[in-house]
Amino acid sequence: MSLQLDFPAVLERWPNFLGGAALTLELAAFATVFGALFGTLAAVGRGSRNSLIASACKVYVEAIRNTPLLVQIFLVYFGLASLGLKFSAFTVAVAALTINVGAYTAEIMRAGFEAIPRGQIEAAEGLALSRLQVYWHIILLPAIEKVYPALTSQFVLLMLASSVCSQISAEELTAVANYIQSDTYRAFETYIIVAVLYVILSLVMRAGFWGLGLVLFPRRRQLGTPL
């Protein structure tokens, strides 16, 4: 048994690979931004005094965390279709990934909120800051700093998980790989290249989050200690 790898046959399709990688990154970027906002709102909602809002947020988080991403994508894809709404595969993929990562973001952010000592909030209230000001300056920003590593891992995980969007023919990296390997009959080579590309995308994202962290957390940049 001998292993014969023919990379040139596959690599000549490099524009397709790059296009797929770009789309994966784009999917991940949209879903990260929307998911971060959506998830943070859900985390705030879970702590709401309005029990209806609080339980709605809890149901959302639990429903998403206990079902597979692929099933969620199909639910959004076929659900919208059966309502007669036509969206591109890309839009559906962004929506489904946003809903998915929003739930995990909500749980992570909730942990961050709970890690803010009560005394911090009292001190801010004692200085006459409004509820919104307290939330923004004293709860939200420090909470994000505290959970930043967990949050960014989740977003990188999301980028990797976006490969299942190939199932609704969004032209991201894995979908592209599927075409290429069926064209070239060089499946192993194709997925080796795809794996390497995913590693590169992960590193790009991690580097991006690292840079963003430097901008967002000047205290950490200066002192290097966790909050």
Binding site: E122, A123, G126, L141, R219
Partner: peptide
């Protein structure tokens, strides 16, 4: 009214 607490409660992420 200004209030000062036993545990200082300075905001750690701010100078």
């Amino acid at each position: 009214v200004g209030i000062v607490f036993q545990s200082y409660n300075l905001f750690p992420h701010l100078t």
